[in-house]
Computed example of a mutant assay.
Amino acid sequence: MKTSAPRRQKNAAQIDIVYLWVNGADPVWLNKRQRAYAAWAQKNPQQLAVFGNVAGRYRDNSELLFSLRALELFFPDHGHVYLVTDGQKPAWLRPSSGLTVVDHRSLLAPGSAPVFDSGHIESCLHHIPGLSERFFYLNDDVFFGQKVDPEWWFGERLKVFMEPSSTRHPDTLTPQATALVNASIQSGQWLAQRFPGYRHRAQVYSHAPRAMRKSLMHELERLAPDWFAQVRSTVFRSWRIPPIISDLAPRWMVQAGYAEQQVLNPLFISTGAPQAAQQFDTLLAHFGQLPFFCINDTCDEADEDDPRLLRIAHTLQKLLPQPSSFEYVDEACVAA
């Protein structure tokens, strides 16, 4: 399923953009998710990862609309945009030669069941037809916050960002740990087996735009075929099968000399946290001076009209009032 006309020819310097997006309120999609989870949970009891099926994981708070506005404001020379979805598209999305909607089914193995684990989908992104060698991968709740310098992000080595605080890790995967912690544990074990002297840092990676090289992801897939196959067997996220892109990919790129690791404390807004209001105030005060920021929906099963959720679009409309070229103008402020 596509919304674009034929794309212009690629050039070696082009940096494409890949987003994952879903509209969790769509009744057709919601019914599909509910039926799929009932069947999956029956076959996989006690396997669901922490927060693996909460509404907040799939809820659309208009983040994508504003992330695209931020993209055009801070990185106007970006390449083609790929929007990876589950047979959906936003009502406000205007057909554009600069954007292609990619259905999950075109990336999954033929005959695959519907997938509700983003870790599964993101493991396939480097197989998007026509994707440039260099690309940014963003979840729709991640935003550029200042002018993008492509050479700083990509340069001689890619930039990856680790959070400053250490995380207490158990020795093995556990159902109580978050997907990021379990991914860190498994990454450490995998890298220690392949790199003598490898020393693991018990920290997780920031919610950030991910600077990627398509050829490196193909190389990692060749090196870790069993892990990729496991991730691509998931329907919902299982604590026994951590994602690859959020931890193993950046750690391996650093270890192999393909990436440079920085410890960074970016603005991470947790909408369900007691300090969320202060975090939004920080965003309003420092917008334009932040390399990137994330607004993570941690309200889980809150109602759609919960004030904590309405604050997201209200704040972003103040910061990014100018519609992007990807919007129908008469619907540009529908979320305000």
Rank of each mutant, 00 (worst) to 15 (best):
K2S: 15
S4A: 04
K10I: 02
A12M: 04
A12W: 05
L20S: 15
D26I: 09
W29E: 00
L30F: 12
A36W: 08
W40Q: 15
P45I: 12
L48Y: 08
F51Q: 11
V54C: 06
R57M: 02
F66E: 13
S67R: 14
L73D: 05
F74G: 10
F74I: 00
P76M: 02
H78K: 03
H78M: 11
G79L: 08
W92A: 01
R94P: 02
S96Q: 09
S97L: 04
L99F: 02
G111W: 12
P114H: 01
S118P: 10
H126D: 10
P129F: 00
G130A: 04
L131M: 10
F135M: 03
Y137D: 04
L138S: 10
L138Q: 13
V142T: 15
F143Y: 15
W152R: 14
W153L: 07
F154P: 06
R157G: 14
K159E: 13
M162Q: 13
E163M: 13
P164S: 06
T167P: 00
D171F: 13
T174A: 11
T178R: 08
L180K: 11
V181S: 07
N182A: 03
A183W: 08
A183M: 06
A183R: 12
Q193R: 13
A208Q: 13
A211S: 04
A211D: 03
M212N: 14
E221N: 09
R232C: 07
S233Y: 11
S238D: 11
I241V: 11
D247C: 06
A249G: 01
A259G: 06
Q261P: 04
L267A: 05
D281C: 03
D281N: 15
F287Y: 12
F293P: 01
F293C: 02
D297W: 02
T298E: 15
L309N: 07
L316M: 06
L319E: 08
L319I: 07
E327K: 06
Y328Q: 10
C333S: 14
V334E: 11
